[in-house]
Design a protein around this nucleic acid. Sequence first.
DNA 1: GATAGTTGCGAACATCTGTTTGTAAACATA
DNA 2: TATGTTTACAAACAGATGTTCGCAACTATC
Lengths: 218, 218
Amino acid sequence: MAPSNRKLSERQTKMLEYITDFVKEHPYPPSVREIQLGCSISSTSVVDYNLHILRREGYIKRSPDISRGIQLLDKDTGRAMGLQTSIAVPVFGAIAAGEPLMAFPEASEAEETLELPASMLPPRTDGMYALRVKGQSMIEDLIDDGDVVLFQRRESASPGEMVAAWLKERGEATLKRYYPEGARVRLQPANSAMSPIYEDADKVEVQGVVVGVIRMYR
Amino acid sequence: MAPSNRKLSERQTKMLEYITDFVKEHPYPPSVREIQLGCSISSTSVVDYNLHILRREGYIKRSPDISRGIQLLDKDTGRAMGLQTSIAVPVFGAIAAGEPLMAFPEASEAEETLELPASMLPPRTDGMYALRVKGQSMIEDLIDDGDVVLFQRRESASPGEMVAAWLKERGEATLKRYYPEGARVRLQPANSAMSPIYEDADKVEVQGVVVGVIRMYR
DNA sequence: GATAGTTGCGAACATCTGTTTGTAAACATA
DNA sequence: TATGTTTACAAACAGATGTTCGCAACTATC
């Protein structure tokens, strides 16, 4: 059944609110009877009836025959909320460490994992990974030593974008701004004390573009 | 019963791993029988027995008589994991907007809320809030216009710390480095084009110290 | 070897919980 | 008014699920 996009009734709104509050305060979703009590509804069948509507309208997802099998969805994106909201972003070692990034890194292979809320991230969250920055080559772009930089995996970049680049011949990964210049590529640090790297275009492999920076002071 | 800090048995380790994996893949915790099947255990009572041990050792919390009432805890901090892992940090408007921060801001009153994983944050997460930075007064400390800055609410700061300061007489909040100098306070911007603010100590109110910076490129 | 503690087993029990059924009131529509 | 749809109710049903009990095997300690 397709969503009718009808406005929710007062009762349905209250139920949705109750479920939202409930999962914030408990480590498990509410049962039908808890919703019944919490919303002063006289019968479980009424709860079930309205849960069907909430499901049809895309507000929740239900796992049949499973107790507490109610899952909140984001009405707009359809993305699961609650437990599933946070997305595991693998954090790899230092960007200058000299190891190429695996083609399809598994979060479990990473030395560390960063659980970020989906709301913080762009719509596309697959192929997202993070690197801990070593050195101050991007200091003038406000990226410091020790910062965690979020990347979106991509194999090409627009001129001027900040990228993680793999230098095939040197066996080295680096964080720089990307400027294609004919047959070669200029990798520009954001540090006036440092010089750009020039490399043949076919010896440079873009591994991702910067989408965010996170810095925590200790 | 106090934790014995004994090493977990192979079976208990496997159960804990199963629960951890389960909550990552489902919006609800596992039932006793699902754990039984998932760990190839012959009886639910054995599961119950070992769950008791996991609870005693501080790995989980159980809600009696409630189906799927298992909650993972962080063994070290005792903090709840799973749904409760993400902490709602209220994001208020621009730091220079000219409004004092409320004493106890509710996440619900904030214009926006940032759900951050507890693992990213310091142990103390109450009194945590965020401000969106307006202007480039802290550019040399690598904080740019538009960045979201995380604060820990505090009423005093050590010299040199970055603080959100409330200037009572000016009716203005500002993000600066904090330098007490006798009877007055120097609020130092990190921007050589800008001058420090000098103010009587009793006319300056520290509202929080910077604990992190988050920047997302669009 | 005796004893106590730990771990495991199977079955039964009690209750929690999703689902279904039959009925009815309220409402809109033709 | 007649008809169909939506919403609500109460009760019962069936399955899911936490809990308990008695017993046995194993282990450590004295």
